[in-house]
Design a protein around this nucleic acid. Structure first.
Length: 114
DNA sequence: TAGGTGACATCAC
DNA sequence: CGTGATGCCACCT
């Protein structure tokens, strides 16, 4: 597994329940400001990681469940989020800004340097 | 080796 | 303010 994956998974795993984050922010935090697509790609391959990756807490910049179709079932992603207290309507997270979790602010500066 | 793809983001019109 | 086009990085065929 590439080191960048380790960083992505590591950061995603730090997202607390009831919080969400977007691809761009994570991409910047791990050192690939333009690699937002890599984060999504990593989520798609999150199953390759032995640890559990709460990929449902990672959405696009507007808080839309762009990747719900990649989860098993019809609306598992939405169910998981709602189960954590997040209101989701029509694949759109309500009050996204309030639930937003910023790794730059919540994690130590050197977290990505490990 | 080269070309195409993707759970995005951003700029231009 | 909405839609379209381009850039990005790593991976796969």
């Amino acid at each position: 597994m590439s080191d960048i994956y380790a960083r992505i998974f590591k950061v995603v795993q730090q997202i607390p329940a009831g919080r969400v984050c977007n691809y761009g922010t994570i991409a910047r935090f791990i050192g690939s400001p333009r690699g937002s697509r890599l984060v999504g790609w990593a989520m798609n391959n999150s199953h390759t990681c032995d640890d559990y990756i709460p990929a449902h807490r990672v959405v696009n910049r507007v808080g839309m469940l762009s990747g719900k179709h990649h989860f098993p079932g019809e609306n598992l992603m939405q169910q998981l989020l709602e189960n954590e207290g997040i209101v989701v309507i029509d694949d759109q997270i309500q009050d996204f800004e309030k639930h937003f979790w910023d790794p730059m602010q919540e994690l130590p500066e050197d977290f990505c340097s490990e």
